[in-house]
Nucleic acid binder design. Structure first.
Lengths: 148, 148
DNA sequence: AAAAATTGATATTTATAAATACCAACTTTA
DNA sequence: TAAAGTTGGTATTTATAAATATCAATTTTT
């Protein structure tokens, strides 16, 4: 869809993203180090943020500042995403994948080196892209279980 | 099962529970106020804790102290439990229940006043009882989705 | 080619969550 | 029935997560 492409386009350098979010550049880098976000990287290693990235970070900010969920709490909540249902990876992959077996952080921070995800760019993955919106994780679980 | 009955029996007064967990009485009351735990209450309103309660609180302590998840983070993680799949409540109940629709805290802290849960004692409910063990929420989601 | 911006890494500050202390009223124990 | 324990409430302390600052090296812009 045209609109999605538009929203996913990496256009804001870090200073501009920080200004849009009213936070410091350092905070943005911290969120990345904590594996909450995966900004686009130019070949020079400089970061660029998309409109979707900005929305995702707004959710993260609201979780931290309004809901009072710690960063490690957010990571654990991300780990509840049934990524294997999105990726449709093999049974063998699943049984070798910490994202399937554990609950320590988002799949894109773990990606088992033996699985189909090992070589993927997680920023482009629907697991990462679909769960930027606040509340989307429980919705997904609910909808999946509805079809039982 | 005999063993479960044994583990669920409310036997420790608050001082003893606090000593077993190496925390203060006040902290135990705080966890309750935050809806992380539901200790048994005698008719005099005095609290009693079971072995299962102690284990549950150990998980909570480990989440706070080791995993560095805030109390509000734990509440949100509890809200990921698909309680409606355990309770098998009606479609009408679900569409009137914050525990089905939202993600702000454990179902036992919300219990929609129009649903089948309204009159239940949540301490006795399998939703509460089954998710005391650390990591059990993701396991449950995983197992439920396996049968798709 | 000079000025402005970004990089990562470490150190410091600040904001606040979590734990503790204190209280008078009530309950249990011995 | 006296001593020990528990109750809920508010106030305070403490521990630390989150944010910020500083740095030299590199990249981008004009």
């Amino acid at each position: 869809m045209q609109n999605e492409i538009h929203n996913d386009e990496p256009i804001y350098p870090i200073r501009e993203a920080a200004k849009l979010l009213n936070i410091s550049i350092h905070t943005l880098r911290m969120y990345e180090k904590e594996n909450l976000i995966i900004p686009f990287k130019k070949s020079s290693n400089h970061r660029l943020y998309s409109k979707s990235d900005i929305e995702r970070i707004k959710c993260i900010r609201s979780a931290i500042n309004d809901a009072k969920i710690s960063i490690n709490g957010i990571k654990t909540i991300y780990s509840m995403v049934p990524c294997w249902e999105v990726i449709k990876c093999s049974d063998e992959d699943r049984n070798n994948c910490p994202a399937f077996l554990e609950h320590n952080g988002p799949c894109w921070s773990l990606k088992g080196e033996t699985t189909i995800c090992a070589t993927k760019n997680c920023r482009e993955c629907s697991v990462y892209k679909n769960f930027g919106e606040c509340g989307s994780i429980k919705s997904f679980i609910r909808n999946k279980l509805m079809s039982l």
